[in-house]
Design a protein around this nucleic acid. Sequence first.
DNA 1: CTGATAAATTGAAACTGTTCCATCTGTTCC
DNA 2: GGAACAGATGGAACAGTTTCAATTTATCAG
Lengths: 362, 362
Amino acid sequence: MSNVRTIASKAGVSIATVSRSLNNHPNVDPATRQRVFEAAASVGYSKANSVRHGVSTVIALAYPGDVVRADYGGFESAMLAGILRGVNEHRFDVCVLSLRRDLAPGESYARLLDRKKIAGVILRVFEDNRDIAEQLAGTGLPSIVVADRYEAPDVNYICCESRVDSRRAVQHLIDLGHRRIALGVHAVRDTDHMDRRNGYEDALRENGLALDPTLMHEIVASPEGGAGLITRLMSSSEPPTAIYFTDPMATIGALRRCLELSIRVPQDLSIIGFDDSDTRRHTYPSFTAVVQDAEMLGFEAARWLTRRLSNPGETALQSMQVVRQTRLEINQTTGRPPAEPCRVLPDGTRVQLNGVQVMQGK
Amino acid sequence: MSNVRTIASKAGVSIATVSRSLNNHPNVDPATRQRVFEAAASVGYSKANSVRHGVSTVIALAYPGDVVRADYGGFESAMLAGILRGVNEHRFDVCVLSLRRDLAPGESYARLLDRKKIAGVILRVFEDNRDIAEQLAGTGLPSIVVADRYEAPDVNYICCESRVDSRRAVQHLIDLGHRRIALGVHAVRDTDHMDRRNGYEDALRENGLALDPTLMHEIVASPEGGAGLITRLMSSSEPPTAIYFTDPMATIGALRRCLELSIRVPQDLSIIGFDDSDTRRHTYPSFTAVVQDAEMLGFEAARWLTRRLSNPGETALQSMQVVRQTRLEINQTTGRPPAEPCRVLPDGTRVQLNGVQVMQGK
DNA sequence: CTGATAAATTGAAACTGTTCCATCTGTTCC
DNA sequence: GGAACAGATGGAACAGTTTCAATTTATCAG
């Protein structure tokens, strides 16, 4: 139906120029390329679906810029594992892409992906790049966002709702008797992380507790970020008795720092963390956590996408907007608040709240 | 030079049959397909390098069977991160493949990869699948194995030598005064893991210490494997005073179990682990480790492969056989052996070696 | 300002790989 | 024995890419 000849006559150029334009070759006049892009878009041209040239069975896992370090909290690697499992049903392959790296000037994301003969795309976009998902939604290229959600009805996504369980996690702390509950949230402003901050605030508000800005901290999502917050908060004049960390790596670092400073968890300090896979079971103590299953998110995204590509007509598969629930798992890092709040200086010195030093840390 | 028409006349069939054969379509006589495969091989046909059809800029990260869980000890994910960095120089893309899933009967691995328009391949093969690397080496498809090494001169690889540092690690324990040193090695029989076992044995032999089979254990490379070995060894009648674990996840589990059983590290037990990335810095205490940089292995493999593909003539890039060294990093989990060897039952009960119970664990 | 030269841009045609459709062959079922 | 059918194959049409030569545009010395 639509091919390079159609585009050529529509744009008033030769097929050679169409091919060069679509493949981002040098030595094409930018204005000409633009005309070709417009003509291609107007006839809904797709190379990946070109009947006479082998239909593509490759989907992409696409990041806006640099690919996120795969060991970043375990989320990316668990999700990738799920994706690789999810494509088996229809025997698709997975290509990992950085969208920005190869985007030519004036080229749309849909055109870029089609140039690489990508049949569908799993998007991993963050706050600044939500527009990528919206741009792709209008095109003929099926796409789905993992771990973020959208108002727009034509953006497909699968994500986890963590607000309810974040509220329950903090409620759990309040039920145990905690009143000074801190928050260590990392500075990514997607729905996923706003959920966690909102859940924390919900619980405090519902229990008539004030939101104390000195207890709410944005940290980097790393062991160092979590450890640093422990040091800072626990040495402050009014330390919290519990902390909710919204990231697994930060939780690991926090627990480690507590061991270093001889802060007993949960006797001196209760900690609730966040987990994307099995991390909570590998620390000591095993941490109480809001758990989301990143492997499942990747699996379901990949399975839906490949099913949709394999059954283009199937109306039931046209759109996918799924919100799964996290779950709260109580483990060993939460307990009653200490009778006497615990303050520990960065060198491990334990201080009573009246200022008397009671014990030298290791 | 070589195209489907060449193959067709060589095999005495039509170009349609050649295309069908090479693309694994049904309704081709197996004998005909075989003839086509042979003709294609004899003229060195490659679809990925077909001049008139767009040269492929996709390399594969290929696993023999199921793709290894990406969070497996952090090795796979760190390596993948390195690969993704390594392909940027020449703007290649990375496709993750399971070779077995799509291999058609009678099809060679080279043919499979060419069918998927893969220009080059990074192989992650284990003991049973070393022949895959050797099969691919003979073909025109550039390939490189990560983290294993080969005698054959035409197999490219990049790996880490860990025997020397494993020996040094155990020597370090011996220098500290340890004599009963256990080994927890996981049951993968590639050069990589034989190195670690051999290094352990080297050090014992050089110091005139007997190899004690009750101290050498094959475990699964997981936190559970490491934890289980701690429980088993420390409750035995003659517990070791030090253990060398050859896997990061096992080391994590071992350290956790020590904290659970109140086994003080290193006062009661010294532990040396293995690390592929930054794991050693995220445990408490930070563990002394033989360290290999999985990210670097992936990076160098991908950079070499993409450079070779971009400069086909360059003789300096024709082959790559690189052995990097691990390094031994002394951290907090190694120290003098205890004056009184420490025996701890699975329930945490601490027992003197004459059998008297001295302390109840938590 | 002019002509020479180089560089950028473009189209026609050649070329490559895939699929449609018709044909041929052997088998099965009445 | 003949109709119906499925498997296998080739010819031809087709889609997309690149080569090569022609054309246009830019640059610059005199």
